[in-house]
Write a protein that binds this DNA or RNA. Structure first.
Length: 288
DNA sequence: AAAGACTTCAACCGCCCGCGA
DNA sequence: TTCGCGGGCGGTTGAAGTCTT
């Protein structure tokens, strides 16, 4: 895709330090179609790398860094455009919980997605929710919320998108079982508001011939089995830990904190974008 | 319909690291 | 050993688009 010309930014003029030795002014700001073509053609002939000399040789009045960024984030043929799929969002949430702001590392596990895109997603979607909840996006409570609300919803969405409507085959039962582990409506997940990573957990997820099974086993592989077997969390000690953490009573049967329904009916009925997932985004809904 | 507020995301910046001379 | 360069990374910016009042 070529630069959207309707979104042209009027960058401030380039300062004296932004020029070649020969006095040629360097361009900044949005790339033109012509520049994109120059870059694409040059790379297709000579390959990537040596970005500074590449910029000069290709006749681009850009810094090497700018060329590199334009290529990697926008022009590279395998770049995937468009909204992140639920599976990709789930991966980002999980991998971020594991690695933090290591965007490029996270991006390595999302083919066609760039670190910049993932970083933007995190800042615009995830951190936005944290702001609305008036919690730090790295706080334990917010991470809980991600795990107990957002991720189960993503799993549900993944299943919705990928599973055949009804089937009595063994593979579909695996898919259903998998969904139950994250589903907000399943008895199990309702009882477990806060699955913590347990590295020793194995095989939460059976591989199956269904798409969701593939996605999930991929996740499991990437995360080294750190996804949670929700059943494990039914342990009483865990339950009390959770109580202490939230500082309120949690009903084991309803995933319900006194005075607040973690996953109220309204929420359960709302789909699908991430904002909808957080319909109850008022801080008090989290006891914050 | 208009104006202001908010969101998105491409692009830039500065820091850091590795490598070769 | 040190210096310079290339490249990678995470954080930040800001114009355009969208939403809300």
């Amino acid at each position: 895709m070529i630069m959207n010309s309707s979104k042209v930014r009027n960058f401030k003029s380039v300062g004296s330090n932004n020029s070649y030795e020969n006095g040629t002014e360097l361009r900044r700001g949005p790339w033109t179609l012509e520049e994109d073509n120059l870059l694409i053609q040059y790379i297709s002939c000579h390959g990537e790398g040596r970005w500074n000399s590449l910029a000069k040789c290709a006749g681009l009045k850009r810094t090497g860094k700018s060329c590199r960024l334009r290529w990697l984030n926008y022009l590279k043929p395998d770049i995937k455009r468009g909204n992140l799929t639920p599976h990709e969002q789930l991966l980002i949430l999980e991998l971020h919980s594991k690695w933090g702001n290591r965007w490029s590392k996270i991006a390595q596990h999302l083919p066609g997605r760039t670190d910049n895109e993932i970083k933007n997603y995190w800042r615009t979607r995830v951190q936005k929710q944290a702001r609305q909840l008036k919690v730090d996006s790295n706080s334990k409570k917010f991470l809980e919320a991600i795990r107990t609300v957002w991720m189960p919803r993503l799993m549900e969405k993944m299943e919705q998108d990928s599973s055949p409507p009804i089937s009595s085959s063994p593979s579909s039962s695996i898919s259903t079982m998998e969904t139950q582990k994250y589903s907000t409506t399943s008895p199990v997940s309702k009882q477990v508001p806060f699955p913590c990573p347990q590295p020793d957990n194995v095989g939460i997820i059976n591989s199956s011939d269904s798409k969701i099974g593939d996605n999930v086993s991929e996740l499991s592989e990437i995360l080294g089995g750190s996804l949670i077997q929700f059943e494990n969390s039914l342990d009483e000690n865990y339950y009390y830990e959770m109580q202490e953490l939230v500082g309120q009573d949690i009903s084991m049967s309803e995933c319900h904190v006194e005075g607040m329904d973690w996953l109220g009916e309204d929420l359960r009925s709302t789909f699908w974008n991430s904002d909808e997932l957080w319909e109850f985004r008022k801080p008090e809904d989290f006891g914050l």
